[in-house]
Computed example of a mutant assay.
Amino acid sequence: MFKIVNTSDMLNDAYEIRKKVFVLEQGVPLENEIDQFESSSTHVIGYDNLQSPFATGRFRTYKNGAKIERVAILASHRKLGYGKSLMQFIEAAAKEADYHTLTLNAQCHAQHFYETLGYTTFGDVFLEENIEHIVMTKTI
């Protein structure tokens, strides 16, 4: 179901999910969604039973650990438990890459979701692309 991206087709699938979720649904400008960290990140893609891409995320080196970013699931696949499975896969991949501290900028509406996975908040709410976020961390 979830895999580390290792082909250009898989990466394009991840970008398409991000465009649908962040650009079309949330109004993030495309030029801000695709950024300078694409090539230095480890990307993850999820394919459903019909081999259709439906979920993505990435992580990269950040400070003394890894930063998880661009976590997205298509609307058609939300509320089915895939978010938890995706995060568990990302965390396992990060741990395998020898990261022990994870950081993410959670959209505030998803804060409780990340708390159920063991993340704790750090600092104050801030705006990123006109969406309220909070920094969250977890040790693995």
Results as ranks from 00 to 15, higher is better:
F2T: 09
K3Y: 03
K3R: 10
I4A: 06
N6C: 11
T7W: 01
T7K: 09
D9S: 14
M10C: 11
L11G: 14
N12F: 11
D13A: 07
Y15I: 13
I17P: 03
I17D: 02
K19H: 11
K20Q: 15
F22A: 09
F22L: 08
F22G: 08
V23D: 09
V23T: 12
L24T: 15
L24C: 14
E25H: 05
G27S: 06
V28L: 03
P29Q: 01
L30D: 08
E31A: 04
E31S: 06
N32T: 02
E33L: 02
I34Y: 05
I34G: 05
D35L: 01
D35V: 00
Q36E: 15
F37Y: 13
E38Y: 02
S39M: 14
S39P: 05
S39N: 14
S40W: 01
S40R: 15
S40Q: 15
S41G: 10
T42Y: 05
T42R: 13
T42F: 03
H43W: 11
H43G: 09
H43Y: 11
I45R: 12
I45S: 11
I45G: 12
G46I: 10
Y47I: 11
N49M: 13
L50G: 13
Q51M: 15
F54I: 05
F54G: 09
T56K: 05
G57Q: 02
G57C: 04
G57V: 00
G57S: 12
G57F: 00
R58N: 07
R58V: 02
R60I: 08
Y62A: 15
K63A: 15
N64V: 14
N64I: 13
A66R: 13
K67Q: 14
I68S: 12
R70K: 14
V71D: 14
V71C: 14
A72Q: 12
I73D: 07
I73K: 10
A75P: 15
S76I: 06
S76F: 02
R78I: 04
K79V: 09
Y82C: 03
Y82E: 07
K84I: 02
S85T: 08
S85H: 09
F89D: 08
F89S: 10
E91P: 02
E91C: 00
A92P: 01
A93Q: 13
A94Y: 00
A97N: 11
Y99M: 02
L104I: 05
N105S: 13
H109K: 11
H109V: 04
A110H: 00
H112S: 11
F113M: 07
F113L: 05
Y114S: 08
Y114D: 08
Y119R: 10
Y119C: 05
Y119D: 05
Y119W: 04
T120W: 06
T121N: 02
T121Q: 05
F122S: 15
D124G: 11
D124Y: 04
V125L: 02
E128F: 00
E129Y: 07
N130K: 12
E132V: 00
I134P: 03
I134Q: 05
T137P: 01
T139L: 10
I140T: 12
I140Y: 11
